[in-house]
Design a protein around this nucleic acid. Structure first.
Lengths: 336, 336
DNA sequence: CTGAAAGCGCTAACAT
DNA sequence: ATGTTAGCGCTTTCAG
């Protein structure tokens, strides 16, 4: 009994089966050089028949392009990184680029380990993503010979970065509330040492004008509760709208308001930030919130890397991508 | 002015700089063959000096091992896939294996595209992960010449699969409640067509015994609300504990109980399933819940692939990994 | 239009 | 102990 040959078919097999030389087979398959239409078709047919698939390693060795990129992320794939990864992958898969996912877990040793592995594998480029804008990317990245793109992170000058436009997102929220006739809008948000927190707060202050009031805290529902309890237990005029720094805070705010008998959105309108659906769809009422379009950020980063690996130029600097307001019922919008 | 040579250093450069032949350099660096200790050290030193890093493509071409594996996942990286990916990566990175992440988004075209790309890249193995146990993995996977491991998914007979032990997890929850003196435990869970739902429900019934009562619904907070409203508005004895099919349902349950003036955990204890922290830490009181140890599933899958790629045998069949009960305050546990 | 040959960077027999 | 050589699978001059 003859053992079945389980080896992968090589271009050598194709050439032999088609009765041509290896180089002719290669030319035919890649449409390079001059090849008789007839032979070309025969070669292509044979290749399909015997299930030939070119070895990407051999190709990469020769072309010095691996058609793979690395995605380096500082966290264990939080809710920010993943939508971005989806966007990256979506853009690249149809161009034959694969993605190595490297979670560094904020550990510099791991980061270097992954980075070296990526370079050894001759990746055509690297996308660095982080969980907050003001996290310093590894300095080595800037010195690499291959293209690097920063997503949700800021690279050094002359590099390419994609950000959500936090200021525009905040304005979107405030203008929406103003348009609904709200006039005493409070901002309850996260820790002041986050860059996005400061940007959003500043845009809120500018957009709302006199009477703006920012409460910094942490990213938790509990903080939303606390803040509401504090604000509504003090004397004086009460707010008629709350713009929250993220959806978790917004959820705490909404729950706290209900607890003290205030109706959302009739008495107080609430807007969140993130559109993290497990929260924003489940608040009662569902939450109007600002979506940072993370997937789009990923897409843009992927596209940029794609262009760069093809030798095209991509403008350097920070590109701020617009946020989108997702209107649900917590502001008095239509039921839906 | 001489252009700086930005080419990557090759073993040829090392050999030249160390004044030895290429093969001696190779032997010295890899510790293969016989090499004089002195030359070996010199070669290694020189290699480090000029920043030599071996080209993984060339190595892979020769050894037919790319030291990369593919992770194929059916969803756009949901909360289930990601912890598993983290576990996989954690185990493999120190062994020099990199991971291609391929999100198929439940699209068969994408799945095949990714699979072919992985094979072209000569990956050493593939891990398939899904978002539910009873999702049929692509049939092509079983026929591959390389090792395949299924995580949170069931492969065909004679393959290797890792599952959470849903039945044990459910028993953990029920026994915990019984141990706390609860005697009228209800099970409010997800859609009956989910295998995990059926397994958990069955284990609950067996463990709780006479009087078991299962309410099937969907995976939402809303359903938790509805179910509680229905149960507490009907005549007859009321439950003193609820075992929920996931954390979202549990959150709805807790909120609904509070709405009708029932205190958790005093009057009714609640246990969830998933330990999705954005929910389970934020319920009031925080939720006692069953953790499926997804990261551990990923680790085991990664370890299995590692063994297989090294030619070691790994027992086939389904391995069910124990769940862990995370005790918070929704059952009357200690405050923490 | 086709084929022979060189070589990408590396490893592993085999000579020396 | 070290060097020479062949070759992994592929693309690409360059002769024919």
């Amino acid at each position: 009994m003859v053992e079945k040959d389980t080896r992968r078919r090589t271009i050598h097999d194709v050439a032999q089966a088609a009765g041509v030389s290896i180089s002719t087979a290669s030319n035919a398959l890649n449409g390079t050089g001059r090849t008789n239409a007839e032979t070309r078709e025969r070669v292509i047919r044979v290749a399909k028949e015997i299930g030939f698939r070119p070895n990407a390693l051999a190709r990469g060795l020769l072309s010095k392009r691996s058609h793979a990129i690395g995605m380096l992320t500082n966290d264990t794939y939080g809710r920010l990184t993943l939508p971005m990864a989806a966007g990256v992958s979506e853009v690249l898969v149809d161009h034959g680029l694969s993605v190595f996912l490297c979670a560094t877990n904020n550990d510099p040793r791991l980061a270097r380990l992954h980075l070296e592995a990526l370079l050894d594998r001759q990746v055509d480029g690297i996308i660095f993503t982080a969980t907050r804008l003001d996290l310093e990317p590894p300095a080595e990245l800037a010195k690499l010979a291959i293209p690097v793109v920063y997503a949700f992170a800021e690279g050094p000058p002359e590099t390419i970065s994609f950000f959500p436009d936090d200021a525009q997102g905040a304005r979107l929220a405030v203008e929406h509330l103003k348009g609904l006739g709200r006039s005493r809008i409070l901002h309850i948000t996260g820790p002041e040492d986050y860059l996005s927190v400061r940007i959003r707060a500043e845009a809120y202050c500018e957009s709302f004008g006199k009477g703006a009031e920012v409460h910094y805290g942490d990213w938790s529902e509990e903080w939303g509760h606390e803040a509401i309890d504090a604000v509504f237990s003090r004397p004086g005029e009460k707010p008629d709208a709350i713009f929250c720094g993220n959806d978790e805070i917004a959820r705490g705010v909404i729950d706290a308001l209900r607890d003290i008998g205030i109706t959302v959105p009739k008495d107080v309108a609430v807007v969140g930030f993130d559109n993290w659906e497990v929260i924003s769809r489940q608040t009662r009422p569902p939450l109007t919130t600002v979506d940072m379009e993370l997937k789009e950020i990923g897409r843009r980063a992927g596209l940029a890397i794609l262009r760069l690996t093809q030798g095209e130029a991509v403008p350097t600097g920070i590109t701020r991508l617009s946020c989108r307001l997702v209107v649900r019922q917590s502001c008095g919008g239509q039921a839906g």
